[in-house]
């Protein structure tokens, strides 16, 4: 009698758990890990818009920020040319299939290549400091920024002749999150930094 009661209780618990799991399963959106509507496609679309500089489309593709990536207007000055190098350099390659994390999130691996503004600045700084030191060594006096600006500009010009030397490729594992029936990018500090050309 006791044994039968135990079996009945176990069956009840088993049934309750089975119903819970079943209901949860019903609520889980079924998504493909590849093909249209997949997290990989969504990340690719986001990066395409960032590379294009399409602010309107990219704006609503990031889950945790209202994200802007509008392409600045082209100019002939040195800073505009640096930004042009940045836009010309951007490319990406998705690596493998997305990995399901849970019912709402997936992880996509991407190789992202960009002109590294930080590296470029370091090269310009090193060259400018060397020139200034050499000229000071030869008796020239540098009193303020006006004295050094022509040297900095010259060094920028020189470094911009071979922008590909400042290209950096890094692997990112981007978490994609399903929200309102579509996939959005969960932006991280590192990925944001890469999108800015390692400037920020």
């Amino acid at each position: 009698m006791k044994r039968r009661r135990c079996l009945q209780r176990a069956a009840g618990i088993f049934l309750a758990v089975a119903v819970m799991l079943g209901l949860s399963g019903c609520r889980m959106p079924s998504y493909n890990l590849s093909g249209d509507g997949s997290p990989s496609k969504a990340l690719a679309a986001f990066l395409d818009e960032v590379i294009e500089g399409d602010d309107v489309k990219a704006k609503d593709m990031v889950y945790n920020y209202y994200f802007s990536a509008e392409k600045p207007t082209d100019g002939d000055d040195l800073n505009s040319r640096i930004l042009t190098c940045l836009y010309d350099s951007r490319s990406y390659e998705l690596v493998g299939k997305a990995k399901r994390l849970d019912s709402h999130t997936a992880r996509v691996t991407v190789n992202y290549t960009t002109f590294d503004i930080g590296k470029f600045e370091e090269a310009v700084t090193d060259e400018a400091m060397e020139i200034v030191q050499q000229r000071e060594y030869n008796g020239e006096v540098f009193e303020n920024n006006n004295d050094t600006q022509p040297i900095i500009d010259r060094c920028k010009e020189e470094q911009l002749t071979h922008p590909e030397e400042f290209y950096t490729t890094q692997v990112f594992e981007i978490e994609m999150i399903s929200c309102r029936g579509r996939w959005m990018v969960m932006m991280t500090g590192d990925f944001y930094k890469a999108l800015s050309g390692y400037a920020v």
Binding site: L83, Y192, S196, A199
Partner: peptide, 9 residues
């Protein structure tokens, strides 16, 4: 709000 272009410029 995050504006990657503004930050980069």
């Amino acid at each position: 709000e995050k504006d990657v272009t503004r930050d980069t410029v």
